[in-house]
Design a protein around this nucleic acid. Structure first.
Length: 505
DNA sequence: CTTAGGG
DNA sequence: CCCTAAG
């Protein structure tokens, strides 16, 4: 709460500055450097607690208070502070120790080393750049970006950083702040720039605006002399470009070893590399952008492969099955594609033939068991399937056999349309590869086929087996029954059975 | 997880 | 067959 207000205070001056900057074109660098410092401070506090001594933060408020100016008059304050403090700056700048700096810090007067230090303080990492302008620019950019710093920064105000005698600040430190009031008062001055006091509003455009201002002002930023300067790429631009380059394939550092170098900086060795951008070469810390996450793999495919392996392995064992010979003769009934798998498909034909042998009830009780035994080997076993499909990741396509269709139809007639789970459990338990969705899909197809074109005895397209008309008729009948209106639950036994299934669970 | 339906 | 929105 009060936090927000505090942060707002930090923001205000800079905002003002930007505005006034135009007017103060000739003013000393200090003018905009000052606000930067504040920004930095707030940033640091949020991120690295250790880095910035809290007293630095104090400086700001004090600065204002000493002038007895309210925040709303920040512009005036700035103007007032500018000239008098300038002298002190240059001398004190021997070291970037902020605590030692009187009131403001001017990047302009810092040595490269100091700039690097400032850079470190700003970004939390070392830099090896020796380009003053670059450093300054980077630092500024970083500070500016801190505008987006969330309100979390404010934790600071608890630590008394608000010791100043400034009215507004005092108000905050008192605690329960009427955030509304406080913010409001601060908001006012800020609003001209289109920036609100609420962090949420800091998002994008405001920042961009900032950046623009700065880049635009770059021309007179150089007190160092150089009248003309090449526009250096922005930090973002650098990063983006780097990524691009790496994506382009030049991501292998070794590709251009000469560009990489280890630089010793303040006792630390940093690996950097040269990157040419916009005609200039800059040194940037080397960061491997190699994708670390595990490459995407098709797990499904692996699964398929595995099951397929099993199939192959299991197939030979088929011989153990004690199936009755007649089944094989019936294989003629099968789908063309399955012909070669007579051995493996036995199970299915098996059922076909068994069915007539058992009563309905018996079948339900027996089939799973019987098929289970055979299922062990033939379960997911399907020699017919080309191994090449294992890589597709797609489920192996297995043509529906007549026996399967019959079972499906039967199941539907027994349990009703839509009771796929039950049908699967009670009638398809052996066919592990048929999911409830498969059943549903197949039923949908059957229905479609039965309703539309009467292909009785005829062949569908080609390659697909012909479905016995009696089945189609059955399908049509069932379809009719279920679709129209509430289908009669005359089949009490169906209900009964469906209940019993719970035992299976 | 099971259904239903579209892709 | 896959995927996804529903319950």
């Amino acid at each position: 709460m009060g936090q927000l207000a505090v942060i707002a205070i930090n923001f205000t001056p800079p905002l003002k500055l930007l505005q006034s900057k135009e007017e103060l074109m000739n003013g000393s660098q200090m003018l905009f450097v000052l606000p930067d410092t504040k920004f930095q401070i707030s940033t640091e506090l949020s991120g690295n607690v250790e880095l910035v001594p809290s007293k630095v933060l104090l400086q700001e408020p004090i600065l204002f208070s000493s002038n007895g100016c309210s925040i709303n008059q920040s512009t005036d304050v700035l103007n007032a502070t500018a000239s008098p403090k300038e002298p002190a700056l240059s001398t004190a700048a021997s070291k970037p120790d902020f605590s030692r700096v009187p009131g403001e810090i001017s990047l302009a007067n810092l040595s490269i080393k100091e700039l690097q230090e400032t850079f470190r303080a700003t970004f939390g990492r070392e830099t090896t750049s020796k380009d003053k302008r670059w450093l300054k620019r980077r630092i500024k950019m970083g500070l500016i970006n801190s505008c987006v710093v969330p309100t979390t920064t404010l934790t600071i105000n608890d630590s008394k950083l608000i010791g100043g005698d400034q009215d507004a600040i005092d108000a905050f430190s008192k605690g329960t702040v009427d955030e509304e009031t406080a913010t409001e008062s601060i908001d006012t001055p800020a609003s001209p720039d289109g920036i609100k006091g609420h962090s949420n509003d800091f998002g994008h455009s405001p920042v961009e605006t900032f950046v623009d201002h700065y880049s635009g002002n770059e021309d007179f930023e150089g007190e160092d002399g150089s009248a003309k300067r090449v526009r250096k790429p922005t930090r973002r631009y650098i990063e983006e470009t780097n990524e691009k380059q790496q994506i382009d394939g030049s991501m292998i550092p070794s590709k251009d070893p000469s560009s990489i170098q280890a630089v010793s900086s303040e006792g630390r060795v940093v690996v950097t590399r040269m990157v040419s951008l916009a005609g200039s070469r800059i040194q940037v810390p080397y960061v491997s952008h190699v994708r670390r996450s595990r490459p995407r793999e098709n797990i499904m495919a692996l699964g398929e492969f595995r099951s397929k392996s099993w199939e192959v392995k299991a197939a030979p064992e088929e011989g153990n099955l004690n199936l009755s010979p007649p089944q094989l003769s019936n294989d003629v009934n099968r789908v063309p594609g399955v012909k070669s798998a007579s051995r493996c498909v036995q199970k299915e034909s098996d059922k076909d033939h068994l069915k007539p042998i058992f009563t309905d009830v018996d079948q339900e009780m027996m089939e799973p068991e019987l098929l289970d035994s055979s299922g062990d080997s033939s379960d997911d076993n399907f020699v017919d399937a080309p191994i090449t499909q294992s890589a597709s990741g797609r489920k192996l396509h297995r043509a529906w056999t007549i026996s399967e269709v019959e079972k499906l139809v039967e199941g539907v007639s027994k349990y009703g349309v839509g009771k796929w789970t039950e049908i699967k459990k009670l009638s398809f338990s052996p066919y592990t590869h048929r999911t409830t969705v498969d059943l549903k899909d197949k039923w949908r197809n059957l229905q479609k086929a039965s309703s539309s074109n009467r292909m009785e005895g005829g062949l569908k397209k080609h390659g697909s087996m012909a479905i016995p008309t009696h089945i189609m008729l059955q399908v049509r009948e069932l379809a009719q029954k279920q679709s129209p209106i509430s289908r009669v639950v005359s089949k009490a036994r169906v209900v009964k059975r469906s209940r019993s299934r719970n035992g299976f669970l």
